[in-house]
Design a protein around this nucleic acid. Structure first.
Length: 269
DNA sequence: CGCCAGGGGAGCT
DNA sequence: AGCTCCCCTGGC
């Protein structure tokens, strides 16, 4: 068990922001998070947070995972005081953080996300994990499934993936898995690249376009300058930033602001 | 019940 | 650059 007082961190907000599809809210103040081959329970009451892991694992894995070394208060203070819309969005989205999730998992998750709702994305991912992932048991006895490897997913037939509810995205997942295995796209290399290079490389994957590539850059590679534009964001930009989002004012934190806007549009409009 | 949009992208023109 | 189809679930 690890206890911390954490400012600007709200586990329920992170869950609701929909960047992590393997997070489950189990109570008013509790969440379960599965990341890679780990599973953790988190209890939060105000700024008091309890993580069901040892100090060492918390420091080495979960602290970077939840981006706890970054000062999000500083991000808030950088927002243009005249920009009431963005200030409001940041206020309502307070506690959200940009996670550092697994690269392959984000590729598959955002391939599945297209033309899809968050509850269904979650269900699709649960299906493929239960079918193709490795079954594991947490120290507290909870059974969970790891995320299926590229090998495991490339061996699934398109029909089987459709049975997991992926629909026409099945062939995207299969082909991308194949491209990764063949090192046509090298995931290890991508992790070393800067934002622009990584994005170009990700666009080679079948089924990955601009928006999905940006989501992967943001949620797996932690390139905070990535600003994924989906239908919600596009509408918000047209309405509030007819001359375009002021990128140059917010170098290296656009992705965080995008999450505030996305969350605000999803829940408050 | 029917209708329709929903965290896009590929494959045409 | 613009258009159509991909699939299917939840909300109205």
């Amino acid at each position: 068990m690890t206890e911390r007082i954490l400012k600007d961190f709200d586990i329920v907000m992170i869950h609701r922001s929909g960047q992590c599809f393997r997070m489950e809210q189990t109570g008013e103040h509790t969440c379960t998070v599965i990341a890679g081959d780990r599973c953790i329970e988190i209890l939060q009451e105000g700024e008091r947070c309890c993580f069901s892991c040892e100090e060492e694992e918390f420091e080495r894995f979960w602290k970077p995972y939840f981006d706890l070394d970054r000062d999000y208060g500083k991000v808030k203070r950088q927002i243009d005081g005249q920009d009431t819309y963005l200030k409001e969005a940041a206020e309502k989205g307070w506690g959200i953080r940009i996670l550092r999730q697994d690269l392959w998992e984000m590729i598959v998750s955002f391939l599945i996300s297209q033309q899809n709702h968050i509850p269904r994305i979650r269900r699709c991912i649960r299906n493929i994990c239960e079918r193709y992932g490795e079954k594991k048991t947490a120290p507290n006895g909870v059974v969970y499934y790891g995320f299926p490897s590229p090998q495991a997913l490339s061996q699934a037939s398109e029909e089987e993936l459709r049975a997991c509810n992926l629909g026409y995205r099945s062939k995207y997942v299969r082909k991308s898995a194949e491209q990764v295995i063949q090192k046509e796209v090298d995931l290890t290399e991508i992790k070393r690249m800067d934002y622009q290079e990584a994005k170009q490389e990700l666009l080679k994957l079948y089924g990955v376009g601009e928006k999905v590539a940006d989501c992967i850059c943001l949620f797996a590679l932690h390139h905070l300058e990535a600003f994924p534009v989906d239908t919600h964001i596009r509408q918000a930009l047209e309405k509030h930033y007819p001359q375009g989002f002021p990128d140059s004012r917010y170098p290296g934190i656009q992705g965080i602001l995008q999450q505030y806007i996305f969350y605000y549009e999803l829940f408050f409009t």
